[in-house]
Nucleic acid binder design. Structure first.
Lengths: 336, 336
DNA sequence: CTGAAAGCGCTTACAG
DNA sequence: CTGAAAGCGCTTACAG
């Protein structure tokens, strides 16, 4: 328990073999007698020796670290997403004896990421967000660092993993259309996030597939703050909107607040649906119809893919993960 | 830009000096001629050479990584706290050329942390949460890894940094008492978190300092879920409570939900105050009285302290950071 | 099947 | 002030 810094050399000496042999026994590479290997392995076990990963890394020009790029300019509602990603990532990383090193970047400043790669501290990188003008991705390409992006981008050649936001939003919207609603508003955030565009796409798809014309005047993007939501919702009410789809739970809760102030009841007067069932709204009455993603699985998947690349395996360029739609009271068609 | 893997040896050869000299020029350690140093430094600058931190670490038995222990069993409302800590930590770490490696631990499983230390991947650790029975802290002590804890613990010898929750809660409570309220309920989470106990202490202090007897029957701890809150709030209403202090914004929003269902108006019938102004409630009407902490500063402070320890400096055993109380509409004494 | 030796890219006594 | 050499703890051709 207390054999601080037992090294491969110590073991070799103790067992009367060479360091080479010990190394081979551990790594499993190279020919070695079964008996010898057993002897070494047993010794290691007994003295619970752990190789110095740093030294191993130096010899192999690897670090056994992956970089996890986290946004420094996040919105609270995104937090559960990033956190769950991280959970999934760190689980598979650690199961493969890798560690996760975080770099916080903003749109203006990617210096933390740069430091990590320049200092040779990481073997590969996971991007937790994709932007249309993706500085981190560009940088990593230039530096030829293996990386995979969570999210979607038009840029082929970037390995990407995402939930199928487009289909999810389409299916949700179709559900609503099928229920008979027509005047459905879509309210979403920053258009420079690919996810916003994909959901928008799905929204349009739904109309098309139902043989309807999407009502573009009810689509509001780049909605950032509560004040803006409030103004929009008031406008919508005036226009007699039937349903509002909010692209995240923050927007959704702003919408709900406004409706409450305006004494508009959900779902009787207006129906509501949201994305990311991140427990922000879990206590809400009525319960809110929402789309859910298994974000931890997304993280695990991403990490597996990155480690695959690092180990030189072939990986698919783009993977899409599923989703789940929970139709709840907030879109209940009580009129019928 | 593209001189991949320029090494100290290359530079030495190029400049006709020894590797020793180059190393000294870079580190600034050891005697070296000003002229020689300049020459080396200039070359390095021109070819933007970056030393391999891994190799440096191996030679010095250091990693230039710090471990950041994050809880895997968190509650959504805690997320902004952890996230902001991380932001502060990663900023000062990277400014000192350290990287941050995360280990996710739960109360049952600290294996990720163990891996990081056993694999010699970190020089020190930051604990983002203190527990009364703190396995990670115990482990780190045993392994003699330098670490500092965010939060408070009774255990002397653990370097700890915290906001002054006790004073904060006292001051808030005193404010309310001074306003004339007497029947104040305190509703809080897990008692195994030191922070819960400290706030409780502050709550009691307030009564004492005001020459009053704290009404213990209105203190509810270990409140975990919405259902429990609901039951409690109904009980409180029946008992004619005047004010409810919620120890976090999640509890607070549960309280608010229940009150709304029960048609109890805030602040007219019951007053409300909360901790952690984490923007969960920022849109709430009426605005919610709350205590705020500069969590990012807490992170920065903690990281500085840890790096201080690692560099062998003397650091204070316990630091307390301030807080800010925002009295808002939810505790407005409209009766007066 | 096993080992001596060189190497990964740095640091640091020890000489000079 | 400067350098040769050993060392950090591992890996890996190259021989045998």
């Amino acid at each position: 328990m207390d054999e601080r810094n037992l090294t491969i050399g110590d073991i070799a000496k103790e067992l009367g073999v060479s360091k080479t042999t010990v190394s081979r026994a551990i790594s499993g590479k190279g020919r070695i007698g079964a008996e010898t290997r057993e002897k070494v392995l047993q010794y290691i076990e007994e003295h619970n020796y752990r190789p110095n990963v740093i030294a191993k890394g130096l010899a192999q020009s690897r670090t056994f670290n992956i970089g996890l790029v986290m946004p420094g300019d996040y919105n609270v509602v995104e937090l559960p997403f990033f956190q769950n990603c991280m959970l999934g990532i760190s689980k598979v990383a650690s199961s493969m004896d890798y560690d996760v090193l975080i770099s916080v970047v903003t749109t203006e400043d990617i210096s933390q990421l740069q430091r990590a790669v320049i200092n040779h501290k990481i073997d590969g990188v996971i991007l937790t967000r994709t932007l249309v003008d993706d500085t981190p991705a560009q940088y990593l390409k230039e530096m030829q660092i293996p990386f995979v992006a969570i999210g979607s981008t038009d840029e082929r050649s970037i390995i990407q993993i995402d939930n199928d936001h487009r289909s999810a939003c389409r299916e949700l919207t179709e559900n609503l259309l099928v229920q008979g609603m027509r005047k459905i508003a879509l309210i979403g955030g920053n258009q420079s996030y690919m996810v916003t565009r994909n959901r928008l796409g799905g929204f349009m798809d739904a109309y098309t597939r139902q043989g309807l014309e999407p009502e573009k005047e009810h689509i509001y993007l780049d909605v950032e703050d509560g004040a803006m939501v409030k103004a929009l919702v008031q406008k919508m009410i005036a226009e007699g909107i039937e349903c509002i789809i909010a692209m995240d739970d923050y927007l959704c809760s702003c919408v709900l607040n406004t409706l409450q102030q305006q004494q508009v009841s959900v779902p009787e007067q207006v129906k509501i649906a949201s994305f990311y069932d991140s427990s922000f709204l879990e206590n809400h009455i009525p319960s809110i119809t929402s789309i859910q993603f298994d974000v931890e699985e997304l993280g695990r998947m991403t990490c597996k893919t990155l480690l695959g690349i690092i180990e030189g395996e072939d990986v698919p360029e783009k993977s899409l993960l599923g989703y789940e739609i929970s139709m709840r009271d907030s879109t209940n068609n009580c009129a019928k």
